[in-house]
Amino acid sequence: MVDKSLELFDPGHRACGGCGPALAARLILKGAGRETIVVSSTGCMEVFSTPYPETAWRVPWIHSLFENASAVASGVEASLKKQGRSEKVVCICGDGATFDIGILCISGAFERGHDITYICYDNEAYMNTGIQRSAATPYDASTTTSPAGACSFGNKLPKKDMPGILAAHGAPYVATASIAYPADLMQKVERAVNTPGPCYLQVHTPCCTGWGFDGSKTIGLSKLAIETGLWVNFEMVDGEVTKAKKVVRKPVEDYLKMQKRFRHLFKPVLQKDEIAKIQAIADSNAEKYGIDIRV
């Protein structure tokens, strides 16, 4: 049972006011509990929570490189197993470290079947280094390496289906969650850490600085991502989708127009064709996971 009052992530870290990943860290640790060893790759969360020689984590925490958090976690897990200990090993890494740089080591760890939980906090770009595009950046988002301008509408590539890739590795439990639904997130973390074998959890964490919105809207925006169908909260057990959050869908404009990274779709002229393409992504998500509530 998740202990909601358990605080293992201290205040006083230097995340921006209204930071999504900071809230994710808090909720993940509530779900995972005290008996946890966290492996964290380079990324925003590492930088804001552990300015040397201090830390905001009340659990053992080890920093790895961008690419090898899952390899370090594999080693930690193998050592604990040899010693007969029962601590849970949890990787908490950003989307750049997961989708782009670390996928080789993640694939290896999942193939070997280590008993680890890999949690990706997905803020949809390399926020720590200055908002560069990653494979998790959604279609048409403007970033510093995919800037919108006269010749471009921003990022031209779709978001990589990371949960699908890791489910195909034979992971027993793969899920997505959002900070807007804390109870669901904590429950999924708890289930993932208690499932033997490599499990994957992807958490949607809006970044007010990188996406360009007011910090007080973090939760509201997270909810909108789900209500528009651009983010789906689902659970996959042994490669089959068993549960997906159903919604009465709103048009994607509601979500897009709140963010500076999509501003070029509305000003100076409304780009109806581009918005229609993003709506099509939401529609295909809705069809794939069956999230529409038929009224």
Partner: peptide, 28 residues
């Protein structure tokens, strides 16, 4: 539950030493 800085106590007292004033609590 929604405070990213864990600055609100169980008794709903805001810890002004750490509250960054993001406004998530007021909004939600």
């Amino acid at each position: 539950l929604y405070c990213p800085d864990a600055a609100i106590s169980e008794d709903l007292e805001v810890d002004l030493d750490f509250c960054k004033g993001c406004g998530i609590c007021a909004n939600e």
